[in-house]
Design a protein around this nucleic acid. Structure first.
Length: 262
DNA sequence: TGTGATGTTGAATG
DNA sequence: GCATTCAACATCAC
């Protein structure tokens, strides 16, 4: 699920449920999901604390504690949040859970365990360490044009690289390429400036649109790519879909519709 | 039953 | 050192 718009929805959910509540108890069920310490250490560091705010950058959600430290929530492929009071609402895939003073719980669910949870004393140092790029919605057109000027890899691979810009994932990257009629395998630097501007604008538009709708796909326009993302898909001009690995991910494109720059 | 998945990392290569 | 590629990660659903 989680690309930038989805994680933004998680942020809203987190803010509405967990903020300003004291953590009475933290329970970790899967030690490996906490990446920089043991589950026990994580429990002890978070118990008794209160969440005071949150900050999202790309797909990374940082939950600030009242001691100035952060809990980083990265949702991987299948991460999700679940705020509940009744035990019947607990997910079988809950990997750890914060229990608050009001007896409500915020569970972190993740069937496939690709999520990454870290306890961070210094958020900025961590962002620096992993070289996380600017959030898509914070990136200026000027910076985007500079970034893309000399890159020799594919535009798809570029958009997915969180070190250049944070937040694009497999589906939205395909969507932007499709809507701008650029083949995802195009060499970044070979794409004319005018077209790179169009990619920047479409990226902002698509991500903004999705964020505004809480990443609720059913509210997206019918002519967006994802809805008919399958082997029989046809572009508006009738050309057929091509499915291949680009930038390491399964990519849907229409060679007859999207121009390949190289 | 085998395959692929809305993501990231770290090793390998150029 | 930088850019890029790709297997590995763990598990479930179709």
């Amino acid at each position: 699920m989680p690309e930038l718009p989805e994680v933004n929805t998680f942020k809203r959910y987190f803010d509405e449920s967990a903020l300003h509540q004291k953590i009475a108890r933290t329970t970790v069920f899967d030690d490996k999901i906490i990446r920089n310490m043991s589950g026990t250490a994580f429990e002890q560091l978070t118990q008794g604390r209160t969440f005071t705010g949150s900050y999202r950058r790309g797909k990374y959600l940082f939950a600030r504690l009242d001691n100035g430290h952060d809990v980083l929530l990265h949702f991987g492929m299948t991460g999700d949040l679940n705020y509940y009071a009744d035990e019947v609402d607990r997910s079988k895939y809950e990997r750890f859970v914060f229990q608050f003073d009001n007896d409500f719980k915020l569970g972190f669910d993740c069937p496939r365990k690709f999520a990454r949870i870290l306890y961070l004393e210094d958020r900025e140092a961590y962002i620096e360490e992993i070289k996380l790029g600017p959030d898509v919605l914070e990136l200026s057109e000027e910076d985007f044009l500079v970034l893309t000027k000399k890159k020799k890899g594919s535009i798809k691979g570029f958009l997915l690289n969180q070190k250049y810009l944070a937040g694009m994932g497999n589906l939205y990257a395909d969507e932007v390429c499709y809507q701008t009629k650029v083949h995802p395998a195009s060499v970044v630097s070979a794409i004319p400036t005018k077209k790179r501007k169009a990619i920047y604008a479409k990226m902002q538009e698509v991500i903004r649109y999705a964020v505004d709708r809480n990443a609720y796909y059913k509210d997206y326009p019918e002519d967006w790519l994802w809805q008919w993302r399958d082997a029989d898909a046809k572009a508006p001009d009738g050309s057929s879909v091509e499915i291949e690995k680009i930038g390491g991910r399964t990519t849907y494109s229409f060679p007859g519709w999207q121009k390949l720059y190289q």
